[in-house]
Amino acid sequence: MTFAILSALPEEQSGLVAHLQHPEQVARAGRTFTRGMLHGQPVVLALSGIGKVAAATTATALVEHFGAAAIVFTGVAGGVGEGVQVGDVVVAQDYLQHDMDASPLFARWELPGYARARLACDAHLSAHLLEAAGACVSSARGHFDLNYPAARVHHGLVVSGDRFVSAARESDRLRQDLRAAGHEVLAVEMEGAAVAQVCLDYGVPFAAVRTISDRADDAAHVDFPLFVQTVASRYAEHMVLAFLQKLSNL
């Protein structure tokens, strides 16, 4: 069973590349994929690039060309939900495209042809990611360049859209609009919902874990680069390795 580990940016999986055994690079769809072994599991590491279309292209290549039996997305996100702070980790329970609006033909956020707005992540994979994330957050306190002693793990809705949300007013409106429709959002990013949709189409299990790099507010453009460089890659490395080790022991 080949696991695909997907991230948007090189920094988000640089630590994983260093652990890869028997690496082999393959060019496909304008991207470089790296095959190898991690904790005895065959894996493919890939960078989606930024945005939903780029992520969908990469996910499709992972399934069609590399035969990925499951896809796990790891990276960063902006915290939107109450109590979701920088340094926290969010394991996605489901995804929604916050910029999808085909009204009045369909309800706002509903995916045409799917009769729903939210796409569920795989419960089995998500449970193992939650366990790995909890262990990572507990062991990481005091060990990273940026210390977050009160870091927590959350599980719930993550939303994606082709826009970097970086203003408090926009973040607040997004949260309020979604809440009014019964969607209690925790975090916002730019790729996961597209990958979730591709995985649903192909019947491939999908899970995602995101480290909160900023609060999707007016300071997001300042917080994001530093956090990705100094913290996000270490979180991803520890969480994914623990996740794969857990699966290899089952």
Rank of each mutant, 00 (worst) to 15 (best):
S103V: 03
H221R: 15
A181D: 12
G113R: 13
V158H: 03
Q245T: 12
G192S: 14
A61V: 06
R141T: 13
F243T: 08
A232G: 02
A117Q: 08
L174E: 12
A135V: 03
S233M: 10
E237N: 09
F33V: 02
H238R: 09
Q176Y: 03
D217L: 05
A132R: 06
L47N: 00
V53D: 09
S126L: 05
A140G: 01
V228C: 11
A236I: 03
L174N: 11
L129P: 02
T58D: 01
T230I: 11
H39P: 00
V240K: 07
Q93C: 07
D99L: 09
R141G: 03
A4H: 13
A207H: 03
Q245G: 15
L174D: 12
L9P: 01
A117D: 05
T32V: 14
A207N: 00
R169C: 03
A68D: 15
S126T: 12
R116C: 04
A220D: 12
C199F: 08
A151H: 04
I5E: 02
G83W: 07
I5D: 02
V63K: 05
R31M: 01
C136M: 13
A18L: 14
V188S: 02
V63E: 03
P112L: 13
V137W: 04
A115D: 15
H19Y: 13
G192Q: 05
L200F: 13
Q93V: 02
D214I: 05
G67V: 05
H124L: 11
Y235K: 00
G142Q: 10
H238T: 10
A8I: 01
G81H: 07
D101V: 11
F66T: 05
S126G: 04
A102L: 10
V89W: 04
P42A: 09
A193N: 08
A236V: 04
N147I: 07
A8L: 01
